[in-house]
Amino acid sequence: MSKAGLIAARLLQIVPTFLLIGVVVFVLARLLPGDPVSAMLGDRASDEAVNRLRQQMGLDRTIFEQFAIFLENAVRGDFGTSIAFRVPVTSVIAERLPVTLALTGLATLIALGLAVPLAFVAGLNANRWPDFLIRSVFQVGLSSPVFYVGLILLTVFAAWFRWFPVGGYGEGVADILWHLLLPAVTLALSFAAVIMRNLRASVLEVLNAEFVDFARAKGLSRRVILTRHVLRNALISTVTLVGLHAGSLLGGAVITESVFAVPGMGRLMVDSIFARDYPMIQALTLILAVVVSLAFLVTDLVQMALDPRVAR
């Protein structure tokens, strides 16, 4: 298939994926204990109010009709009214989405900035002390829960040294960065560990590849071999890896935002659970899954651009 054909096919794939995400979220919502209407209105609502809401939500129709209504509303961006905020769910999420995206984006940059150079140092010194040192540090990072790292950084750099705010979100780029730096570093550490581990393995693999021998036989300098031949090949696999971890990064954001009181979607999710704000939980689950599938899509497209072998 041609490259354009592949890209088109990949873009079309997103449609069934969105549909299936909708099914899962819809089913999840139907599994809620008790009647969603009484959950939303409370026990003391009048029968008349309950019936009106049931009709409004389409709960008196068949399950398929309900699903069709759910989908239609979802496409229009209508997820109902938040129980906790008493405003449309969408308007609350619209405020929170950029915060979470900024946090995860910054964390990804920090993770790459840490992991890529160190993976090279480790790979080039395989099984010597710099390698052991880097791998040991990252092994600890990999085994450290995000909330624990976050609490330590928060206490040390925000509470004791007072270099950073203890939480919240800022106004304007510089202020936002200042507020997000600690949470982003927290989120980045375990992600960096994953990237480092994989990139080191692929650097080693590439270093042992025959095309590196051939490049040496051509008389190329070490610098050219490393930057043109090794880096390029090793980074292609890293792009895929970063994309595949979009989900765990957002999962980590849920915890990080809770620790640092960052007003993003993750913290909203946890708050909503304790507030039993079911429409909000439903919408957040759906939107986070959509964000991940979009991240997968972007990854695949970038991979197609970087790796000529993808077009078969």
Binding site: S248, I273, Y278, A289
Partner: peptide, 24 residues
């Protein structure tokens, strides 16, 4: 295969939290 594709689209922690929200 489709199921795997679907499951990996949900952030694992988010899905688990959502299920815990349902179950308590």
């Amino acid at each position: 295969g489709r199921l795997v594709d679907l499951v990996v689209t949900f952030p694992f922690l988010v899905l688990v939290i959502a299920i815990v929200a349902v179950l308590g």
